[in-house]
Nucleic acid binder design. Sequence first.
DNA 1: TGTCATT
Length: 489
Amino acid sequence: MARFTQTETRRQHHPQQPQPAHSSLVFTGPGAPPSQHGNMKDQDAIKLFIGQIPRNLEEKDLKPLFEQFGKIHELTVLKDRYTGMHKGCAFLTYCARESAIKAQNALHEQKTLPGMTRPIQVKPADSESRGGKDRKLFVGMLNKQQTEEDVYRLFEPYGVIEECTVLRGPDGNSKGCAFVKFSTHTEAQSAISALHGSQTMPGASSSLVVKFADTDKERTIRRMQQMVGQFGIFNPAIALPFSTYSSYAHALMQQQAAIMAASHGGYLTPSVAFPATQIHQMGALNINSLPPTPMTPVSGLSSPPANITTSAVPSIVTPIVNGFTGIPHQPNGHPAVETLYTNGLPPYSTQSPTAADTLQQAFTGVQQYTAIYPATTLTPIGQTLPQPPQVIQQQQQREGPEGCNLFIYHLPQEFGDNELMQMFLPFGTVISSKVFMDRATNQSKCFGFVSFDNPASAQAAIQAMNGFQIGMKRLKVQLKRPKDASRPY
DNA sequence: TGTCATT
């Protein structure tokens, strides 16, 4: 029955009734005058569900029973959509909210209609509350000092508050948010209109948030996303289309480069995370001038590098691996890597907006590759991968364990969370990446955080990426300062 | 040096 009720509710919920003059007021407080004439209903009228009705009773038969509590706005017996069969229940809306309350008090479970074994049900229809959702607000960006009473005061002007709870952690400290349930949707809506973004509480990082609370379903989704962030149990890369040959090749190179970077320790190593062809181009750019001229998008990233043809997958492994093994010490047919670094720094430029794209493309293969091939095929030169890189797309801002969180400064202006993550993926599983944005300008503050799932990856990333030059700046890559630490830099 | 937090 509950399911039918839901269905019927939705179906019947749509017809918009003409509203009485007073209902157009944004504020519909507890003192809102009830409708007195016509078939108008109060804006805060309650739709009642009537259950346990004998199937031989139609609207006209039921009307007298309910009319004694007030003028009826609408009474509908529920019928099966296809067979037209009486479902033994109805929806009833009185013109006045008060009538509904009276009827419920007088009738619900109080009387059994002829032929029925259970007493009549008279209660607000599911549509009236959706579990309270449509009149329950989530309030965020509160001051953590604000109590239930403070919140109550804040929302009181907009209607009758049935419930007001400040969310608190286990220690009893406010989480800076609350739930406020009004008696009607309209009241809740007016509170949103009046209060959302209206003020910034002292100590809050942005203006007050007032919105309808999540439904159960939404909460479940949120929970799942949090689990993803915490445990990395979901790898969306699996859902990506099968990698092209070229991205596979890139993936191999980058994977090996990552291994090199992790095991080598020199500042030179990060550069091998880029295909040789790309190193060349970027290196040249870097030599020419600082700041470099805007870079054309590096072409050919999605096609195989020159030294890789269309041979079967296993056969390309060795040459690539060998090539990369040689790079740091013995350049292999390309100009010596060192000679490209005329300023003694690894090459890379992100002066143009295309640079972020470039990086992203350069690393894209890693994700696909990791998802599709078993780990054993990833180690053709007998090395063990520290951690298969993973991409968590629905990331939360989560810190990893102690020693796994990096603070990165001097990021290119155009780097976002994703670019930051792509840049650090070769060193392990990135459980979160966050570039800080200036709220006012929506511009990057050029620093951010990357969290790995293990300290070794973090250390490898520091070794490889600290001091890495991008444009005119060098990345500063350090362990994130623990909250309680007070060591200034 | 993790900005936003959903009983």
